[in-house]
Simulated scan of single mutants.
Amino acid sequence: MNVLRKILIIGFFTIFVVFGFHLQKVSANGSGIVIDGNYNDWNGQYQKVQANSDAQRNVGIWADQNNIYFYMDSAPDFGHNNQGNDNSTYLNTDFTIQVGGQTYVVGSGRGFMDQSIRNFESSPTNASTSFDIKYWAYTAANHYTPQVVGKALATHVVKGNHSDNIFEAAIPMKALGITTIPENTPIAISNPSIWRGTVSINYAGAPTGPWVLVGIGVIFAAVGVIWQIRGTKKTTIHEMEVVHA
């Protein structure tokens, strides 16, 4: 029985370790994107798009089972081309997110509410800040009063007389009223004020791999216990036969 107890303890410890691995994995999204003002995790996750001028921008969108993430570097080549005044975050304009056939219009300000955005973008020195992301939708209760649904972290970079504005944002799906997204659902973002066309991905679905690992851990633990019990029984029977002999 002491051996059996050890097997059970090892089995449960294995399950605990694997389950801990699962919790760590689902706390992040499959792309490794974290909204922290460090934009390196968007490398390879964005597309280059043509602005409504000669400028180009980097725009990305991603989603996991909890959030929709999006990103824009307004003037990625600002060190060589200042792009005139075409280097804003444009968080005071309408970003249209489409999930399947549903449309969600989000942004951080309109009219008098975007003064803080303009002040940030015109800073003479490097600066970082956060802005509320609002959902511009009509409801019977709130009419067109925007509801805060997420956060954007923005960075203003100055190099000589050139500047750039970058931001990344996350919106919880439940804040938009989204409960589930079927696998391979197209998710797109557009903003005609900033770039031409849309940037889109196909939703990969919620991760299942870690749960498979948990299942495997349980199976291995159970099989180990069964084999230990069978081995113990065989040993006992053999000992009894020896005694009778």
Rank of each mutant, 00 (worst) to 15 (best):
N43Y: 05
K151I: 12
T103P: 10
A75F: 02
A140Q: 11
A175T: 04
G30Q: 05
N202W: 05
D54M: 12
P76I: 08
Y138A: 01
S128T: 04
A245L: 13
S116H: 10
K159E: 11
E183F: 00
V242M: 14
I178S: 02
H162M: 04
G30F: 01
D94T: 09
V225R: 07
V243G: 06
W211T: 02
V17F: 05
P146E: 05
Y203S: 10
G37E: 06
H143K: 14
S130C: 00
W136Q: 01
E241N: 14
S108E: 10
F78R: 07
F21D: 03
N87L: 08
G224L: 04
T155H: 05
I226E: 12
N161P: 06
V105E: 11
G209F: 06
G44I: 12
T232K: 13
A127Y: 01
N81Q: 14
V218G: 03
G177V: 08
G20E: 00
V26I: 15
V18R: 04
W42A: 00
N119E: 14
H156Q: 02
N38G: 04
G150E: 04
I117W: 13
G101S: 15
N67V: 10
I7V: 10
A152S: 13
S190D: 11
L153D: 09
P207A: 02
V242Y: 12
G231E: 07
V218Y: 05
N67T: 13
M173V: 02
G160D: 10
Q228H: 09
Y203L: 08
G217F: 02
D114R: 15
N191F: 07
N52A: 05
N126P: 00
S108R: 09
M173E: 09
D114V: 11
P192W: 06
I237N: 14
E183D: 03
T155R: 11
F70H: 09
A154D: 05
G217E: 03
Y203D: 08
G11Q: 03
S31R: 10
E168L: 00
S200G: 13
G101Q: 15
T125V: 07
Y71L: 08
N81Y: 15
F13L: 14
V26C: 06
T139Y: 05
S88Q: 15
P76F: 08
N66T: 11
Q56C: 08
G11M: 02
G100Y: 13
V99K: 14
T14E: 02
I194V: 15
I61P: 09
R196A: 06
V26W: 05
K234S: 14
R118C: 00
T235V: 13
F21A: 04
N43G: 03
F19Q: 02
I68Y: 06
L176A: 01
Q45D: 11
Y135P: 02
P76W: 08
E168S: 01
A141C: 03
T185K: 01
N2Y: 01
M240R: 14
G32L: 07
Q50C: 04
I15H: 02
A169H: 04
N119I: 10
